[in-house]
Design a protein around this nucleic acid. Sequence first.
DNA 1: CAAACGTATAAATACGTGTTCATATATCCA
DNA 2: TGGATATATGAACACGTATTTATACGTTTG
Lengths: 103, 103
Amino acid sequence: MTKPIPSQLDTTILAETFRLLGDPTRLRILFFCLEAPRSVGDIAASLDLSQSLVSHHLRLLRGARLVRGNRQAKQIFYELADQHVSGMLADMAHHVCEEHAEE
Amino acid sequence: MTKPIPSQLDTTILAETFRLLGDPTRLRILFFCLEAPRSVGDIAASLDLSQSLVSHHLRLLRGARLVRGNRQAKQIFYELADQHVSGMLADMAHHVCEEHAEE
DNA sequence: CAAACGTATAAATACGTGTTCATATATCCA
DNA sequence: TGGATATATGAACACGTATTTATACGTTTG
């Protein structure tokens, strides 16, 4: 039940994750993949982004193990990789709505 | 019990918060203030940062209503402004420890 | 009031990074 | 195998931003 301060290293690692979540485009991609696994093309078309841009962002998200891609024929379907992340995103999506009500 | 996708605007707002959390220095400041309200000088000394740098970061955190400062004589003590944020940070601090155990 | 202390602001710089454009890799189909 | 589709990669650029240095503002105490 302690509330220890994370080490500087832990903090840096955690910040790295937050940093990735801190881009609107990436966050939109994550929320879109939160509903269901989505192909790169679907993401690009649905969010009105270039295929290249989506791919670049997915690479970063993959590198941080935030998303996970499954090849299905020509397409690759991406989904949230971690229960932690998807849970947190869902919470955040919930909180962001409440924020508007406050004050 | 729905799991709606946040609007693009909501996502941008949320990303703004994540972006602020995505810097190691700021995150260290937040964790340090999570334990107790801290003066700017205390933050700077304890985390080995310049007073100016701490002040700059606090300004950003204040702007996003993530921290809140109370003047006490010459010093200003900063603490986490929002229950949401402090709760999330505590969770994160918890998760980041678990991560190490995984795999 | 003036000096001292604590904090905030301004300007400048160095660096990272989001985006685009062009091209490469990979998988399927005729 | 060759063409078509889907995804990934590389280079280049524009822009934001974290940090430093110097200075200003505000508050307390002689």
